[in-house]
């Protein structure tokens, strides 16, 4: 499903060159859940952005669902992101000018699907996270937890094979965070979606099938899963 080999990435920091990723290798199978942990500035988000085709590595190979990302043109990458990837960000990143339902159906609109079918599916998804009656509300009318639930619905709208989550509960209180995680797991399991999740939170990481530590620019196995989000297939 996800194949990463020898990925390096460096940033210019004034005169200095800071290597964030130093030959990262990673393989994630279909339906697997992987948590990437590490200290701040270790490159977790950079790796996630590279997996999400939002950033390009300086060297190495990234292949997702058979698509070689470094070889694809920008328009093709955009289409790939739309069809094959779902993103859940720490700061929900909902579009404030659009209602909850419009936010959820946005990937479908981008894909060129008809509005009528999207509304039905969007309302169903919002119903699954308990927000059907808030479908017409704008993000600023929703609480933090509700916004993140809407963001999860949006990420899963087109049933992408891969879900990438960057600190999905990092901005929520413990109760809301736990609920969001449950929902993420529940919806993901129904669709057998592969999940790569970046987190600081050991409790969140422990619920994934595999936890990897990113430190010094390299990935290493961190610890055995505590309470996995699903039964591992690999």
């Amino acid at each position: 499903m996800i194949f990463v080999a020898g990925v390096t990435k460096a940033y210019r920091d004034g005169e200095a060159r800071r290597e964030v990723l130093r030959g990262v290798d990673l393989e994630v199978g279909r339906g697997e859940t992987v948590a990437i942990v590490g200290p701040s500035g270790s490159g977790k988000s950079t790796l996630l952005n590279i997996l999400g085709a939002l950033d390009t590595p300086d060297a190495g190979t990234v292949r997702i669902d058979g698509v070689e990302l470094s070889a694809a043109r920008p328009a093709a990458l955009a289409g790939f992101r739309n069809r094959s990837l779902g993103f859940v960000f720490q700061f929900h990143q909902l579009l404030p000018d659009f209602t909850a339902l419009e936010n959820v159906t946005m990937p479908g609109r981008i894909a060129g699907r008809s509005a009528a079918s999207l509304v039905t599916e969007g309302l169903e998804l919002l119903g699954q996270v308990g927000l059907r009656d808030r479908a017409g509300d704008f993000p600023q009318q929703l609480s933090g937890g509700e916004r993140q639930r809407v963001a999860i619905c949006r990420a899963l709208m087109l049933e992408p094979p891969v879900l990438l989550a960057d600190e999905p509960t990092g901005n929520l209180d413990a109760t809301s965070g736990a609920r969001v995680l449950e929902l993420l797991n529940d919806l993901r399991q129904r669709r057998a979606t592969t999940l790569v999740l970046v987190t600081h939170n050991p409790a969140v990481a422990s619920r994934c099938g595999r936890t990897l530590l990113l430190d010094g620019g390299r990935l290493a196995r961190h610890q055995a899963p505590g309470r996995p989000l699903n039964r591992q297939r690999r």
């Binding site: 999400g52 289409g79 739309n82 990837l85 990143q93 000018d97 946005m106 981008i110």
Partner: peptide, 16 residues
Amino acid sequence: RSEVGVLAAMGVPPAR
């Protein structure tokens, strides 16, 4: 700015 970034992340191609 951030919304344009989100749209791009969701797969809106540069032309659109």
